[in-house]
Amino acid sequence: MLPLPWPFDRDYMQYALLAGLVVGACAPLVGGFLVQRRMSLLGDGIGHVAFAGVAAGLLLNIWPVWTALAAAVIAALGIEWLRARGQTSGDLALALFFYGGIAAGAVIASRASAVGKPANVLPFLFGSILTVTPGDAIAVCVIGIAIVATVLIAGQAMLAVVMDEESARVAGLPVDALSAALAVLTAVTVVAAMRVVGLLLVAALLVLPIATARLLAKSFRGTLIFGSAVGVIAVVLGLAAARLWGLAPGGSIVLVAVLAFAVISAVRPMRTPPPSAHDH
């Protein structure tokens, strides 16, 4: 146990803090690319399918994190495949997975209850950061390292892909592989964030800090770094508020992120609109 000040003086708060900080810092790194690709809700779609995975794990007596991870990765690749084929628009592809996932989750969870297995899905839907174990914290850290490493190595190429797929292809970038990598990164982020804020709120950690960062940063790099900072602040303040007033930690963290966005958009100086002379 580290000699941290209150409210992080207890073991369980420190594991929560560790997992929360990693997720808070890393989720916006993935979210920055999703927002640029107009796929802000991808995390949400994956989260809904991961819920079906959780229910399946409870039914089959498998650690639900594994089944959630499997479901999330399959959903991510499925949505990406539908989007890339261009047959289905991105948001329709998402809707398919959204409702398919939540419906399957409800059906499987009811089946688990029917055969006498405890199907307590609430911790997965709303997070259970205060029960994070050292094992969970390590798993979250591994995911965080994978995210940071991928963004460091492939971030510029992924930016090229989300800006303009066709030119990226002409430039010889492995567009399909990079898109799949982004989808899988989103899936693992969703599963990591599931413990922290719950499946219903995971997309908030991917997207809200980036929405705030975009108001201020002028570079893409700056947007990612600033988004990470907002994510970290939201986790620290949200956890502190949860301990102080006995609130739900997941909801508190996301509310801080919402508040950060509201405050920054209220106080930031208006950007001058781009000059539009000769633009038809």
């Binding site: 190429a157 930016l159 430039a171 975009r214 940063a217 002028k218 893409f220 700056g222």
Partner: peptide
């Protein structure tokens, strides 16, 4: 798009 001119042009250099 929160990207600078330099960032956008640099993605062309990746090729």
């Amino acid at each position: 798009l929160p990207a600078t001119v330099t960032e956008v042009v640099a993605t062309g250099r990746l090729a």
